[in-house]
Amino acid sequence: MKKLILSITLLIAGLTVHAQQVRELDEINEDNSWLKLGVNLGAPVGDVGNYSSFALGLDVAAQFMRTDNYGLGIATGYTKYFEKSSAENYDGLNDGFGAIPVGIMFRYYPQPEGFFIGTDVGYTFLTSVNSSDGGAYIRPQLGYHNYDWNIYGYYNQVFRADPSIDVQSIGVAVTYNIRFK
């Protein structure tokens, strides 16, 4: 997993090297900054896949295009992991559980419309878990974007100090861009 994180970090850093004009925060306008609102649908994998049948969530992010190709911002939301009816008894899980990520988002857009690559990194708070420790998370993404919409596939993992509940999922998400004025 460390190699995956290092590879993604190096890829994003390398892609930003050939960025052109760098914008400052006081240059925020409807052409380079927006609020992203959307939904995600995931399939739990790893240990939590024995407990949860699917995950459904809301994504919220604010993005600033630092250059024409490189965006950064903050990301949050809420994802509910629904319990299987025949779920194994996992200590600390009560009738499903929730995940609230708070992180930084990085995106690379090679063209104004088309494919993009990105990741969110930060901390996820878990709800309805007896040992409510959350953990650091990473959510690499690959998708398609245009002026108004983004659709992408993702892998999400929460790294917890207590590895008894390994929170991982793969899924798809759709977000709509609301322009800042």
Rank of each mutant, 00 (worst) to 15 (best):
K3N: 11
I8L: 14
I8Y: 13
I12C: 05
I12L: 15
A19I: 03
Q20F: 08
Q21Y: 11
L25H: 09
E27T: 14
E27D: 11
E30I: 01
N32F: 06
S33F: 02
L37H: 03
G42Q: 04
P44R: 05
V45M: 06
G46V: 07
G46N: 08
D47R: 12
Y51G: 10
F54N: 10
G57A: 01
D59R: 15
A62G: 10
A62H: 10
M65W: 09
D68N: 15
D68A: 15
G73V: 09
T76F: 07
Y78E: 02
Y78H: 07
T79I: 02
T79H: 06
K80S: 06
Y81G: 07
S85L: 08
S86H: 12
S86F: 03
A87D: 05
Y90K: 13
G92L: 00
G98T: 02
V102P: 01
V102A: 13
I104K: 12
I104S: 00
Y108C: 08
Y108Q: 11
Y109P: 03
P110A: 03
E113M: 15
G114E: 00
G118I: 05
T124K: 10
T127I: 03
V129S: 02
D133I: 03
G135I: 05
Y137P: 11
R139T: 07
P140F: 10
P140R: 15
G143P: 04
Y144H: 06
Y147L: 14
W149I: 09
W149N: 14
N150I: 06
N150K: 07
I151W: 12
I151K: 12
Y152D: 10
G153E: 00
Y155E: 00
N156S: 13
Q157K: 15
V158Q: 07
A161V: 06
D162H: 02
I165N: 00
D166I: 03
Q168H: 07
V172Q: 06
F180G: 12
